Amino acid sequence: MDGKAFRRHTFVATGPDGGLTGFVTVSRSPWNRRLTIEDVEVAPGHRRRGVGRALMGQAVEFAREHGAGHLWLEVSDINAPAIHAYRRMGSPGAVRTSRSTRTRPQRGNRPSA
């Protein structure tokens, strides 16, 4: 990636009234030319209207402009709506699902009352 001094960058989407409809935050790792998509959020009332796709498009274009070798996106394996959305968008980078860990009290390990 080029030597420009950014580490993190956020793109925002706004509606006709100027209100925030979504954002995507990216960060770079110069040593491996990776652009990581850190966070993608679209307001509930604006989902399934192309806002997420447009934001991801901005991230992809930004990666190209700054010489990224690849994009990285990680999502929890229990976040089915996000996984579905990323797959529907064609996964513009490496999409990795990470296993979530939930802790539940085991039988016999409950605190005494």
Results as ranks from 00 to 15, higher is better:
Trp31Gly: 15
Pro30Phe: 08
Ser29Met: 12
Pro16Asn: 12
Val12Lys: 14
Arg28Asn: 06
Leu35Asn: 04
Ile37His: 01
Thr10Glu: 05
Ala43Lys: 08
Val42Asn: 00
Ser27Cys: 10
Ser27Tyr: 01
Thr21Ser: 09
Ser27Asn: 09
Val40Arg: 01
Arg47Ile: 11
Asn32Glu: 10
Gly15Gln: 08
Gly15Ser: 12
Leu20Met: 14
Asn32Leu: 05
Gly19Thr: 12
Asn32Asp: 14
Asp17Glu: 14
Thr10Tyr: 03
Asn32Tyr: 08
Thr21Arg: 11
Val26Phe: 03
Val26Gly: 01
Gly15His: 07
Thr21Asp: 04
Ile37Cys: 05
Glu38Lys: 02
Thr21His: 07
Asn32His: 13
Val40Asp: 03
Ala13Leu: 04
Leu35Cys: 11
Gly18Thr: 02
Ala13Gly: 13
Asp17Thr: 11
Ala43Ser: 11
Thr14His: 14
Thr14Asp: 09
Glu41Trp: 08
Val24Cys: 00
Trp31Gln: 14
Phe11Glu: 04
Ala13Ile: 03
Val26Asn: 00
Asn32Ala: 02
Val24Met: 00
Thr36Leu: 00
Ile37Ala: 04
Ser27Gln: 09
Thr14Phe: 04
Phe11Gln: 06
His46Arg: 15
Pro16Cys: 07
Val12Asp: 12
Arg33His: 10
Gly22Ala: 07
Val26Tyr: 02
Asn32Ser: 10
Glu38His: 01
Ser27Phe: 01
Thr25Phe: 07
